[in-house]
Design a binder for these strands. Structure first.
Length: 583
RNA sequence: GGGCGCGUAGCUCAGUGGACAGAGUACUUGGUUCCGGACCAAGAGGUCAGGGGUUCAAAUCCCUUCGCGCCCGCCA
């Protein structure tokens, strides 16, 4: 309802300004501070002071007087407070909010008709997913969910770098070294077993003498050339390594949960000829230069040229990624990519080149996040330094289970949790806490990983919000057992306590929060919202007993609890955090 | 050296032109005959990194200095 109300206010303001013969520019619509009862406000009077030759409070009063609330949907009254024009809704605003929010689909916006491809993670398939990368799947998966809530037709892709030197080296190492020479895998899972070959290959190359090193390099080069020439046998050999490792990584990512609709291999764009065709078109560009035996683009605004064809005639990662993006443009209306900040330059050059190729790069968005580091430095799959995501999630679940068990005796609610419940709650809370902690922060801010901080279940974390959902479920269960049905519609006048009004206002905002998160590609605004929502719900819970209230009030409050439950359930769903029925 | 990002309470973070800058945590204090205490209430805590500018209005925009991170490869 908030979005509809805001639109009404915009209409009313525009009409009023036209009536008063004032210029319509920025309407200055904003959300007022907490202690102001209005749902939205406008500071437009400030901006008009000069044009109107009057002080802002006078203009605000004129605007308020020029608006007849009855003419606009949901608008109850218009008030001024100094220079601000405040807009208050009529009762139907709250009644419609309550009705809309009881729908299981609450928060989903009308279909945009756009197909959007969200590419995220896309880590080289060289070994276990570590925490340094964990921000990518969490931000990416949440972003995909938010875009879907916002009415888009979303597809999630993992772009597999299977054509680079690292995978050629990995394939060589896998075929060269014997398992007898390798340490025990750190975990009984394919990618942990496989990464041992990769690490062995890297350390061998570091220590090998010139002759051995040269021989190994020749084999690695042969694999790279085979891929470039479209040699089927080479492709199969590399694929075996890539698919095996990727399968293990996929299982780990699934735990977050982060799922993918498609894994797009970069060799695909070599094998189907699109990279070669692209190279031809790049060579024909005015910006193309042939220097030092290599084809490059002299991009304006960039210091360094972008090499797109090596002197040996092979393509580079960015060349293939260009072909990949042209493919995306062909099949989707919009493309969003979640990338580490270390890829910023490459991504900017990619965009600039797509521009030169006459693509509309407005439909390409890149979301950057900064790396997660350990107090002692970075994490590396090759060197085997860092915390594996599997270990972090296991530890989170273990600690969550301890919490649940510690609290069992203190529970007021008498609902006998089973062993399965404990297991479920430990998973929901443990993984939810890790995920929420990461998605709630702006991705551009740096994070240093510390166990105790990542696994802090205190307030403002996932469990705090999840608890609100469990509480709602608890109340609704009790009501149902006592035979109290949740009414479809109620008289909003029955919900007149300030805590009830605040909660209704928060519920009404949810679709607008989804809209903002999708527009700005910032899922963390949803996390911020869930905390504000939880606070409003807890205040309501404290002041307004539901089941023990008289019948009319009980019904109204039950409807409010039901609406709260779907709102918080869907907000958590948009973040990819589980909403426990009990905890 | 150049480019990009970040700097807000002791700590972790919201807030990116508009109403006195907000939460959590830590610290002090209080709350369960009553629907779930993983909760709530009160207190204290700020040169919004420093300086300059634009504006009726700046944590927010511009310039500059400092600190931290990332990038500047015929790697990905």
């Amino acid at each position: 309802m908030f979005r509809e109300f805001r639109a009404s206010v915009a209409d009313a303001l525009e009409d009023a300004l036209a009536t008063l013969d004032l210029p319509v520019d920025d309407l200055g619509i904003e959300r007022p501070p907490e202690d102001v009862p209005a749902v939205v406000a406008s500071s437009v009077a400030y901006r008009l002071a000069e044009a109107a030759g009057a002080p802002p409070p006078k203009i605000a009063a004129d605007i308020a007087a020029a608006i007849d609330p009855a003419e606009y949907a949901h608008l109850g009254s218009v008030e001024t407070q100094g220079p601000y024009v405040n807009f208050l809704p009529e009762e139907t605003y709250f009644e419609k909010t309550l009705e809309a929010a009881q729908d299981d689909e609450y928060g989903h916006l009308p279909a945009t008709g756009d197909s959007v491809v969200v590419e995220h993670t896309s880590a080289n398939p060289t070994g276990p997913v570590h925490v340094g990368r964990a921000r990518n799947p969490i931000v990416g998966d949440s972003l995909a969910r938010v875009l879907e809530y916002a009415g888009n037709d979303v597809e999630v892709h993992y772009y597999v770098n299977d054509a680079g030197r690292q995978l050629a080296l990995f394939t060589w190492a896998y075929e060269t070294f014997s398992e007898d020479d390798l340490p025990e895998p750190e975990r009984d899972s394919l990618e942990y077993e496989m990464v041992r070959y990769y690490r062995k290959g890297n350390s061998y190359l570091e220590d090998a003498d010139a002759a051995d090193s040269e021989a190994a390099e020749a084999e690695i080069q042969a694999i790279l050339q085979g891929l470039e020439n479209g040699d089927e046998d080479t492709y199969e050999r590399v694929s075996e390594v890539v698919d095996t490792v990727l399968g293990g990584m996929r299982d780990t990512l699934q735990r977050l949960p982060a799922a993918f609709d498609q894994f797009i291999k970069e060799t695909r764009f070599m094998r189907d000829g699109s990279t070669d065709a692209l190279v031809d078109r790049l060579q024909a560009l005015d910006a193309a230069v042939y220097e030092a035996d290599a084809w490059q683009l002299d991009l304006p605004d960039f210091e360094k040229n972008l090499v797109f064809l090596r002197s040996d005639g092979t393509s580079l990662y960015t060349t293939r990624d260009l072909a990949h993006h042209e493919w995306k443009f062909e099949h989707y209306d919009r493309a969003v990519t979640v990338l580490g900040e270390d890829h910023k330059l490459q991504a900017d050059q990619l965009s600039a080149t797509l521009d030169l190729l006459d693509h509309d790069t407005d439909c390409l968005d890149q979301v950057f996040y900064s790396w997660v580091n350990l107090p002692e430095g970075g994490m590396s799959t090759r060197e085997g330094t860092g915390i594996d995501l599997d270990d972090l999630l296991d530890e989170a679940i273990d600690r969550a289970r301890e919490e649940v068990e510690d609290r069992l005796d203190d529970r007021l609610r008498d609902d006998d949790l089973t062993e399965d419940d404990l297991d479920r709650i430990a998973h929901q809370v443990g993984i939810g806490a890790v995920r929420f902690d990461i998605v709630a922060k702006q991705p551009t801010k740096g994070i240093t990983f510390e166990w105790d901080r990542a696994l802090d279940f205190e307030a403002q974390s996932a469990p705090y919000v999840q608890y609100v959902h469990a509480r709602c479920c608890g109340i609704l269960d009790e009501a149902s057992e006592a035979g109290h049905a949740v009414p479809d519609s109620i008289d909003a006048g029955l919900l007149s306590a300030p805590e009830e009004r605040d909660l209704l206002r928060e519920i009404a905002r949810f679709p607008a929060v989804i809209e903002q998160a999708a527009d700005e590609l910032r899922p963390h605004v949803v996390a911020t919202y869930t905390r504000a929502f939880a606070e409003a719900f807890n205040a309501f819970y404290r002041e307004c007993p539901v089941l023990t209230a008289d019948e009319e009030r009980r019904e109204a409050r039950l409807a409010l609890v039901a609406a709260s439950r779907t709102t918080i359930a869907n907000a958590l769903d948009a973040l990819g955090v589980a909403a426990p029925d009990s905890m």
